[in-house]
Simulated assay, not measured.
Amino acid sequence: MTDAISSLRDDTVPEHRRGSGLVRLLLSNEFGLAVLIALAFSAFAVSLPGFVSPFSLFTIGRQIGIDTMIGLAMMAVIVTGGLDLSVGAIGVCAAMVFGYLAQSVGVPLAFAIPAAILFGAGLGFINGYAVVRSGVHSFIITLASMSIFFGVMIFLTQAQSFNELPAAVPAMGKLRLGGKVSVLLIVTLVICAALSVFYRYTVLGRQMLAAGANPKAAKLSGIRTGRVIVSCHMLTGALAALAGLMLTARTGAAVPSMAGQLGQDWLLPAFLAPVLGGTLLSGGRVSVIGTLLGATFVTIMTSGLLLMRVGEFWILACLGLMLLLAVLADRFRQQVLRARGMI
């Protein structure tokens, strides 16, 4: 089973076809993003003196942590070639469940936080089960569930916020290490490390990659692709819930509109980070580090443009253009690597 799974992975290319490691590095999304991040950060640091102040670095790092978590949530379902438009709705619903447990019921945070994450995984299970049982593409299923989850949440909460959470919640959002580094960013880095290990060394992680790379071959090798798809959606739900909790810690309250109407404000960051980072929309390949770098680049660009007082409309237009260019660049990179016999 393990050998069959390994044979389906993108990185099991014969040695004579791998080509120059240096060329592959220079053509990788990670290298390109690292260069763009360095250039953007340097440009804003020179033109905007306040950009590198301790408080600015703290807020940028905190936002990077949240945006990366949102991107990881989408990445977890793109692995199998699926999409989840309900990421924002799940995140908000989980945050509201956390607010209800922590504020109204008085459940200790040690139990309220895992309960909210499990709730998000449960909503992800509903999405995954519906996709597998119906055979309808996840785009349609999650487009519907986005409205359902959000609508039910608004009905049950009457659109009321939970703004009297335990003091430890907003304190976590404000906590910084060394005066500059947000604890929320540290949490995200830990999750990134865990996901890297998960996809590289665990059976389920390799099955997810195999099911995304070649579903038919995965079935022939004995992989139960239906369960794998459901597991991907559950992981997406759990990560979206964690992103919602991080946003709650930043704002100090669980607010129904914290991700926009129906959670749509999360959609662009959710796609931008993994796609910029090199995760294939067709499935079969992920880059956890690339997703982190993609979110970092987007956050730095957004923060710098806001400090330059660029209109929000133009910032959204810029982010949309970045997503389009990222998709085109990915296709070009694949063509170059294929022409050189490296893939």
Rank of each mutant, 00 (worst) to 15 (best):
L272Y: 09
A210T: 12
G135H: 13
A194V: 15
I70E: 07
F119W: 10
G290A: 01
G311W: 13
L204V: 14
S7W: 15
L33M: 00
M342R: 10
A73E: 05
G178P: 07
G106A: 00
V255Y: 14
G21F: 15
G320M: 02
L316W: 14
I186W: 08
S28Y: 14
M322R: 00
L48C: 01
R9Y: 15
F271M: 08
A159T: 04
G91D: 05
T157D: 04
G50M: 07
G263W: 10
I70L: 09
P215Y: 04
G50C: 04
L48K: 08
V136A: 07
V228F: 00
M96A: 08
V190I: 15
E312S: 04
Y100S: 09
G311T: 06
S221I: 10
L25V: 04
P215K: 00
A89N: 10
L306D: 14
H233F: 13
F297P: 06
L328T: 08
L281F: 03
F125K: 08
Y201Q: 01
G294V: 04
P14Q: 10
A254P: 03
G179W: 06
L57N: 13
N127W: 11
T188R: 03
T279G: 05
T302K: 00
G290V: 03
F155H: 09
M172K: 03
Y201L: 02
Q261I: 13
G21Y: 15
K174P: 06
A40G: 10
T12Q: 14
I78G: 06
A94C: 13
S7L: 12
A167S: 13
V105I: 14
F55R: 12
V203D: 04
Y199P: 11
G82W: 02
A211W: 02
L319T: 11
G82A: 11
V131C: 06
L27D: 08
T2I: 13
R18H: 13
V52L: 12
L195Y: 10
L204E: 05
E30C: 00
S287W: 00
G179Q: 11
M153Y: 01
L156V: 15
Q158M: 11
F198C: 11
S231K: 01
V183N: 09
A213P: 01
R17Y: 15
A193M: 05
V35P: 12
G106E: 04
L36P: 15
F119K: 08
L319K: 10
F41V: 06
Q103C: 03
L281K: 11
I37W: 11
P256H: 05
L268T: 05
K216R: 05
D330T: 09
T68L: 00
S221T: 07
V152I: 15
G71H: 06
F119E: 12
F271H: 10
T251P: 13
R62P: 15
H233Q: 11
V197S: 06
G91V: 08
M208A: 07
V105A: 06
F139E: 02
T291V: 14
V255D: 13
G178V: 12
M146G: 10
R340F: 07
L195H: 09
L305H: 08
V336L: 13
M234V: 07
V46W: 14
V336G: 05
A273R: 00
L184K: 00
A254R: 01
L323W: 03
T59N: 15
